[in-house]
């Protein structure tokens, strides 16, 4: 006779079964199909496909612009989250709701909106043009679109962590003689670092997979402003399913490596504190 711990939800066996089933059916199976489709290619064919100059250019843009967008969001998302958590001002709830807009908007709409504003004759674009700054149809536009759509992920990941940083921690640091910058660096930043990394990760993952908003503002010049997801779609339109699958596998691998690296960093950070305890 086994002792069962009373719990609101059904026991371990059932929940674990569900976990495995869902992960398999919804995540692992399609991914396996993708790898399988790519595996039907010959190895040399595969290598030639994924290392063509056009593909390499698209990786650079996709991952570079995504990393840049996630970095921008880590910094400014932190500022936005800080403002929303710490200050009470008229319209705070409105701004809080606005943060989620990119979640809900069809990404194509975001793309069209951005293009309207930043195109050569757009509202802002026309003032940037004389300064020699071109946004639409350049890598800058791609970064801008990725920043926009991944912003809520960064903000929402950091908000709860910032709620945890109570005001008295800063006040304690202050009475102990620390200046603002010192207190920020030694107290606030270390406390929110895990959330900051999570925010970065989510924003990055979202940006890498983004398609809809980018294609409108990118201009899609091969080697210059063509992102990998677009390249995949181009292959699909030419009924080159295997080529598309090969590129997909590369994206999958690279994303997995990046996410794994960040997760390991998080784990290491946690262990560092745990180790200090012994």
């Amino acid at each position: 006779m086994s002792f069962r711990k009373p719990n609101v939800l059904p026991g371990f066996g059932l929940t674990f079964g569900f976990t495995i089933f869902f992960l398999s059916a919804i995540v692992l199976l399609p991914l396996a199909a993708l790898v399988l489709a790519a595996a039907s290619m010959h190895w040399s064919e595969f290598v030639a496909m994924v290392s063509s100059p056009r593909a390499l250019g698209s990786y650079r843009l996709s991952f570079g612009a995504s990393a840049l967008a996630a970095s921008i969001n880590a910094v400014f998302g932190f500022v936005i989250a800080w403002t929303l958590v710490r200050y009470e001002f008229p319209g705070r709830r409105l701004i809080d709701a606005l943060i989620d807009m990119p979640f809900a908007l069809p990404t194509a709409v975001s793309g069209i909106a951005l293009t309207t504003v930043f195109a050569q004759h757009g509202w802002i674009g026309r003032y940037l043009e004389p300064l020699g700054i071109k946004v639409a149809y350049t890598w800058l536009g791609v970064t801008l679109a990725l920043t926009l759509i991944s912003m809520p992920f960064a903000v929402r990941a950091m908000q709860p962590a910032l709620l945890e940083v109570q005001h008295d921690l800063e006040e304690a640091a202050e009475t102990l003689g620390a200046g603002r910058f010192y207190a920020f660096r030694r107290i606030i930043l270390p406390t929110v670092l895990p959330a900051l990394l999570t925010g970065f990760t989510l924003a990055f993952a979202r940006a890498v997979g983004e398609y809809g908003s980018v294609i409108f503002i990118a201009g899609n010049l091969p080697m210059k402003t063509e992102i990998t997801p677009l390249l995949i779609v181009i292959h699909l339109e030419q009924f080159d399913y295997r080529g598309a699958a090969a590129l997909g596998v590369v994206m999958l691998l690279m994303s997995f490596v990046v996410l794994l690296a960040i997760n390991l960093l998080q784990a290491w950070n946690r262990r560092r504190h745990a180790r200090a305890a012994h």
């Binding site: 109570q166 006040e171 304690a172 202050e174 009475t175 102990l176 030694r186 504190h273």
Partner: peptide, 27 residues
Amino acid sequence: ARKRGVGLVFQNYALFRHMTVADNIEF
């Protein structure tokens, strides 16, 4: 406050949770 030379103890301790006891005291 940081130049007043006072020590303040809060009701909810306000310890720096990511730091060890030693680091807290040596802050």
